[in-house]
Design a protein around this nucleic acid. Structure first.
Lengths: 187, 187
DNA sequence: TCGCCGTTGTGACCTATGTCACATTCAATG
DNA sequence: CATTGAATGTGACATAGGTCACAACGGCGA
């Protein structure tokens, strides 16, 4: 399936659009390719785009004062990635996004998203629901952090995304779980 | 300031509405009063409403198998509270909401929110931004969990919401921070 | 006023996880 | 091939935070 088809399918799960409108919407997305290790957003950047992942995998992460990395999200196909705080507020990025498995994405600029939301009520609806899902998912992860130990969180992650086990190195999984790589290795 | 004024002010920070439209929007909210200790949503309920807090304070929390409580949010004036996952999906509530300081709220039903979003594009826009703010805030809290120890999280909370120190008992603050009340007491 | 219960503090001890050091494996590259 | 460096495993030890037990305090209803 190509990028536009995947995105169309993704959007139609939430809203119904005519083919013409779909074509108009899709015309605002630009396909881009990234290779493993490539940087997409660095802290300090002015963030202009969000990215719908068609293939491959991205990670969004924060680096603290001790240069320790915390992964907020692995973005697999059908997910969106960006520094949403910076994107919406216009401030400089605080989080980084880079590519961990050769990726194809569809980039949408902040201006174009707001334009689409203004022009097409259904798209505003779509983005409301998308954000809502992200909100609920993040709240669940927060609860999992408070409720479960490292082993339980690891098993939870692998149950939900078995592909990750082979796709990404263990020290990145540790950074997602919020434990040291040594601890993860002992699980 | 009465409830409608506060809500109007809150909404106008994000979108501009005429007085007539505002009146129409506000007519969908019903004022309710809760007293300290009162239950608003219990796990297992069918969730019908979300609540805009005008005065007082609510807490949203999860109870695990060991009957341990984890607080997702303290809802102060100008915040919204509900089990948003249950509300949006139609499933039974997994989280509880109750009142920790005598409260006045404006209740909006799920149907009315969707109706307002359908009828008034600006309201869809408003709710998109509201949810986006919640998403970003939750992500920040997640990062704080990974990055900071109990003491740092406690200080962060008190800096952000100094009122909480006197308003809510310490064991609830501990349940928000995800530590035992004994640990909090030793900070 | 008395007694009760919710809240908070604190000591003793236990456990999960972090940190540091070093070994091993393996893929990429000259 | 030989070499390098990233990824991973593992032992020894340190420490934040959990758990349990008990004491102290204070407000509120009988």
């Amino acid at each position: 399936m190509n990028g536009h088809e995947l995105l169309q399918k993704h959007i139609s799960k939430t809203v119904t659009l005519s083919d013409d409108v779909f074509e108009y919407v899709l015309s605002h997305f630009k396909e881009q390719h990234f290779t493993k290790g490539q940087t997409i957003i660095s802290a300090g950047d002015k963030v202009q785009h969000e990215y719908f992942v068609v293939a491959g995998c991205l990670k969004s992460f924060y680096i603290n004062e001790d240069v320790k990395m915390f992964i907020l999200q692995f973005s697999m196909p059908n997910w969106w990635a960006s520094d949403f705080e910076a994107l919406y507020s216009g401030e400089k990025a605080k989080i980084h996004v880079d590519c961990i498995a050769d990726a194809t994405v569809l980039a949408l600029s902040n201006e174009d998203r707001e334009k689409l939301c203004r022009e097409i009520h259904e798209m505003e609806h779509f983005f409301r629901w998308r954000t809502n899902k992200g909100y609920v998912a993040t709240q669940k992860r927060l609860l999992s952090f408070m409720n479960n130990n490292a082993k339980q969180r690891y098993e939870e992650l692998l149950t939900q995304y078995p592909q990750l086990y082979n796709l990404v190195p263990k020290h990145l999984i540790a950074a997602y779980l919020g434990v040291s790589r040594e601890t993860l290795s002992r699980l």
